[in-house]
Design a protein around this nucleic acid. Structure first.
Lengths: 150, 150
DNA sequence: CTACTTGCAAACGTTTTGCATAGGC
DNA sequence: GCCTATGCAAAACGTTTGCAAGTAG
């Protein structure tokens, strides 16, 4: 079955090669905010010939065509997610590294007004909240190299 | 004269070495959001023996003690600024790379409420807006390697 | 048939580190 | 005097690129 990403590729006039099809499938099935390494691991499982370089090239291509969006979310590696109709924000659990997405349309509108007040047209925005679950005693923030901070 | 950063270092029980004093001075005098390279260039001018590694180690140390905050602001290199009492936001001009800071206390409060709604205590937040000056025709986003995008 | 895409390995820019020495307290 | 900070050079890390071979349209 053809994924939504594949359809977007065709709509953007991109050549549908084997590796791109596999990476599109992986992107459609994974949830969360995978980094390139994770995408490569998953794609490699479906087709061991797929190289890391191709995954890098493909996510960059997809990003340039507005199919994917790149986030940092406090981690060193870039992380990707499918583009949606409107921006959404991310709340990062500093203890577990878990990322929660949420919509906040009023805030997006507010930010647009703030930009306008400074004489700017808003093109995009990133809102990342870093926090700790309520009722959790403060502890060492990152046991392993997974969680992320500001 | 002793800088505010130096005072914060002492308050945090940090050893006040020569290089740290110089870097503290540079951080106090520079304005904007310098990256490590720029800090090193400025520090090196005051004391040519100061190495890049020491600047890296020092900003990391200062960040760990809450004296500095790290930002990405769409650029590849990490950029630093002094911690303030409350968070402020950044508006990046996509054409020039220029960064405008602004306060938006209601938004900070709103974000705190949003985090709470999801069961989190807000520790910090990053809000980065990317935009274009009103009345500017769209053009090639980045003539040189300075400006930054989402 | 042609132009674009791929895999590989090597290069890249940024950040970190191992080690011997220098220096703060 | 002890223990940490420093400089240097080398390593690590994520990402990009040059090139020859492969493949979509």
């Amino acid at each position: 079955m053809e994924t939504r990403i594949e359809r977007l590729c065709v709509a953007n006039g991109l050549r549908m090669t084997g590796p791109r099809r596999v990476i599109a499938r992986v992107l459609s099935e994974v949830n969360g905010h995978p980094d390139v390494d994770e995408l490569h691991r998953l794609a490699h499982r479906l087709d061991p010939r797929i190289s890391l370089a191709t995954v890098y090239r493909t996510v960059r291509l997809f990003e340039q065509h507005g199919i994917l969006e790149r986030r940092s979310l406090g981690s060193r590696r870039a992380r990707y997610e499918m583009s949606g109709e409107h921006d959404h924000f991310h709340l990062v659990d500093q203890d577990s590294g878990q990322v929660i997405e949420f919509d906040e349309p009023e805030t997006e509108l507010l930010m647009r007004k703030v930009a306008a007040r400074h004489g700017f047209e808003l093109v995009s925005l990133k809102i990342e909240l870093f926090g700790r679950r309520l009722g959790t005693a403060a502890r060492a923030p990152e046991p392993a190299g997974e969680a992320a901070g500001p």
